[in-house]
Design a protein around this nucleic acid. Structure first.
Lengths: 201, 201
DNA sequence: GGGCGCCCGTGACAAATGGCACGGGTGCCC
DNA sequence: GGGCACCCGTGCCATTTGTCACGGGCGCCC
């Protein structure tokens, strides 16, 4: 039996996927958590073989949880199961030691197969997503440019962002201008939207 | 047996919820669809009693699907099952004849219970969401203001929006200014973000 | 040391944006 | 008819924004 910890913030979806995996002969969901910062504890407590984690969760992202697992529980494989096929997510997940990456629109057999592959020590990456990630290329933004784009969310003003980051307004605008150029957009909001869509934030 | 059609664009989630509902004695998922415009056909073909629909789907929204069902298949109850607890969604769903509204973070029993209630002709609305919807009040935006806010998404410029809507730039800016005032925000992007969050678009 | 990239800041410029006042048109309801 | 809300447009204003040029500081690597 492959012992699985399931992490997803939507209670109903989590329970439903657990029910689905429970139908498989060789899979057993031994714990379910709704927060990213509870993954490591659950894996340790139940001696799980594989953690299936969503990315966007309260407490910590699935990618952060994966990094902590790789550090403290290297024997436990991690598989990311997410709605959002952002290219940057895949890259960061792989850097965090994730060995499986499946979209929530995949057929059911693909998830079960990927779990078995990860448990066996192999890698299973969604093919279509891997292709788009390669097409998209790497994150061209500097750390500071990412910061200002993050701070630019929800239509904030330059003054707000400068106060948040402890910078002069002119500096913020320079970083924004650079980010706008690198993303091939015309306004900071377009740049922020594109960076978010690409998974660069 | 209550015959159910399930509509959700994420294949895995859809199958998982179907598996979960299949565990209930009196519930039977007779069809699954991934697009909003396939709901009516599936209900008609399988003679379903209740349609469980997500809101954000390709083809047509779950709310649009509900309106069509109320028109062509009034005997079939509709229950909305969604991740997004936007107050405006609830209002529009009720206007479309939806009798059940459950969030994806609800416990499992709540969904099954809501399905039975809807099948019996009653109403089952997520309590927390109903409260926030009442707190938020109604949509204060005029149709035209909603249009310009929709067109303002993704950081578009006034010139673009004016071209899209066939208006003069000054007119667009006046509508924007009005919408900014009504939403209590400072920029069009904040206004668009707030309107979106409230489910007014 | 020299080159390079990144960070932070200043100053100045044209363009876009938000705010306000004003006028004309349409439809609805008392 | 009169009030009212909505729609569309024009004009003007101060502010914000995006862009560019420039300079200094820091750390890394050849």
């Amino acid at each position: 039996m492959i012992r699985i910890v399931l992490a997803d913030d939507e209670h109903l979806v989590r329970g439903a996927i657990a029910a689905l995996l429970g139908l498989e002969e060789d899979l057993e969901v031994v714990a379910q958590v709704g927060r990213g910062d509870e993954v490591v504890g659950a894996v340790a407590e139940h001696g799980a073989d594989v953690a299936v984690v969503d990315i966007e969760m309260p407490g910590a992202t699935g990618i952060e949880a994966a990094a902590r697992l790789a550090d403290r529980r290297p024997g436990c494989g991690v598989l990311v199961l997410t709605s959002f096929g952002r290219p940057g997510y895949l890259r960061r997940a792989l850097d965090a030691g994730v060995r499986g990456f499946v979209g929530k629109d995949a057929p059911v057999e693909e998830l079960a197969g990927a779990i078995r592959t990860v448990h066996a020590g192999g890698k299973s990456i969604d093919a279509a997503l891997a292709a788009t990630a390669l097409m998209a290329g790497d994150n061209p933004l500097t750390p500071r440019e990412s910061d200002v784009l993050r701070a630019a969310a929800d239509g904030r003003t330059v003054a707000d962002m400068a106060a948040d980051l402890g910078l002069a307004r002119g500096t913020v605008r320079n970083h924004l201008s650079s980010a706008i150029g690198k993303t091939g957009t015309a306004t900071r909001h377009e740049a922020a939207a594109k960076a978010h869509e690409m998974g660069w934030l």
